[in-house]
């Protein structure tokens, strides 16, 4: 039993760490806020969940559920956070329009008569304006 659990941990820890690293790499390499969000929301969440499951395999029985609970929270909250960030990013020019193949939302907003400002120019730093 212990060997089995150790194997689970030995597989899940490196895999989780690898996804953590790839998520961080995506955060740096991707060109605009919106695609960085993909790295933050998915690779990162998957990495954390794998690590947590791996850790819970090593924990005494009564503490393992709490770790799985953290994983569950993360699974539920990560999409919500990323949706809100995506929504804000879309409206604050966090989107490089040169990368886009099509933008159905811009078409919709234009038809509604509430288009956003000019094409995706990245706004200079918010904090630097002060």
């Amino acid at each position: 039993m212990s060997v089995l659990l150790d194997t689970v941990t030995a597989v899940l820890f490196p895999a989780g760490a690898a996804f953590c690293f790839l998520g961080a790499l995506g955060l740096v390499r991707f060109p605009d806020t919106m695609s960085r969000l993909h790295a933050a929301a998915k690779a990162q969440t998957l990495g954390l969940v794998l690590v947590l499951v791996g850790a819970s395999a090593q924990m005494p029985g009564r503490h393992a559920p709490a770790l799985l609970l953290v994983a569950l929270f993360q699974l539920f909250t990560a999409p919500i956070t990323s949706q809100i960030i995506a929504r804000t990013a879309y409206r604050t020019h966090g989107l490089d329009r040169n990368l886009l193949l099509g933008d159905a939302l811009a078409d919709r907003l234009a038809r509604d008569g509430t288009p956003l400002g000019g094409p995706g120019r990245a706004r200079p730093d918010e904090d630097a304006e002060r």
Binding site: R29, F30, A39, L99, L101, G102, A104, L105
Partner: peptide
Amino acid sequence: LVKSGCTVAWQVVRHGRRVSCGI
């Protein structure tokens, strides 16, 4: 979830700065 982690990871490694997307 596993698939999407792999997809994003692959995009990071393979395309990086020249990723193409759409809304």
